Computed example of a mutant assay.
Amino acid sequence: MNKKLILGLILLATIVFLGIKFSQYLTLENAKAQQETLNAYIEHNFAFAAATYFFAYIAITAFSIPGAAVVTLLGAALFGFWTSLLQVSFASTIGASLAFLSSRYLLQDWVQGKFGNKLGAINQGIEKDGAFYLFSLRLIPVFPFFLINLLMGLTPMSVARFYLTSQIGMLPGTAVYLNAGTQLATIDSLSGIVSPSVLASFALLGLFPILTKWVINKVRPTAA
């Protein structure tokens, strides 16, 4: 049996196993329950905890494990906005690039067979708008995050362009999400939910896709 096929099957089995094993723990309820304990640990082991979070986030993204959104919010609550922005921005892009590479070199047949019907739209978008199309998807994901990573691996786009475009394109959304996460950390009672800062953060989270779509529609003719 082809070595690439064997590695691809092992990777696919790992993704399924990790998704089943750990997705049940990556919930908002569990994150809030563990927050106090984690805060106490981080206070005395900041560097190790930050590194662990960083590499765990890479793994979650690379293996497409459900719950990345919760881990993002938890990171903001535990490490603060700026530290978590640095961690999540780079970790998510590195993880996405690993998924991109695994699709290109190991899981190509599986991705093509399972999601190939969506590849036509991706190829047309890249042919028309180039990297700007990926940039648009990162700002307003028409397809799920993990699917963008896998499908892009089947296109001619270079790894360097994929990484750089993803790094820049995901940054605004990451910042908005992490800002909401810092506000979640302040909610200790029902009254905290209606505080101005919390309401403003979640309003921004809801309006962000609408605003970015408007900006993209304005910029696209210029970029073409």
Rank of each mutant, 00 (worst) to 15 (best):
K3F: 10
L5I: 04
I6F: 05
I10H: 09
I15D: 02
V16C: 15
L18C: 11
Q24F: 10
Q24N: 14
Y25F: 12
L28V: 15
L28T: 14
E29C: 11
N30R: 12
T37E: 11
N39D: 14
E43A: 15
N45Q: 13
F46I: 10
T52W: 13
F55P: 03
Y57N: 06
I58E: 11
I60C: 04
S64T: 15
S64A: 11
P66E: 00
P66L: 00
V70A: 09
V71P: 03
V71S: 01
L74M: 13
G75H: 07
A76D: 06
T83N: 07
S84A: 15
L85A: 08
F90N: 04
L98V: 13
F100P: 01
L101M: 12
S102V: 06
S102Y: 10
S102E: 05
R104A: 04
L106G: 00
W110K: 06
Q112C: 07
F115C: 04
K118H: 07
G125Y: 07
K128W: 07
D129N: 15
A131T: 13
F132T: 15
Y133I: 11
P141W: 01
P141K: 02
P141D: 05
V142M: 00
I148E: 02
N149E: 07
L150F: 14
M152Y: 13
S158R: 02
A160F: 08
R161A: 06
F162L: 02
F162S: 01
S166E: 03
S166G: 02
Q167E: 08
G169K: 06
L171N: 05
T174Y: 04
Y177S: 05
G181A: 03
T182H: 06
T182A: 14
Q183T: 04
L184K: 00
D188E: 05
D188V: 04
S189E: 05
S189C: 01
V194M: 15
S195K: 14
L199M: 11
A200D: 11
L204H: 08
L204I: 10
L205C: 03
G206M: 07
G206L: 12
L207I: 14
P209M: 01
V215G: 03
V215L: 12
I216R: 08
K218S: 14
R220Q: 12
A224N: 14
A224I: 12
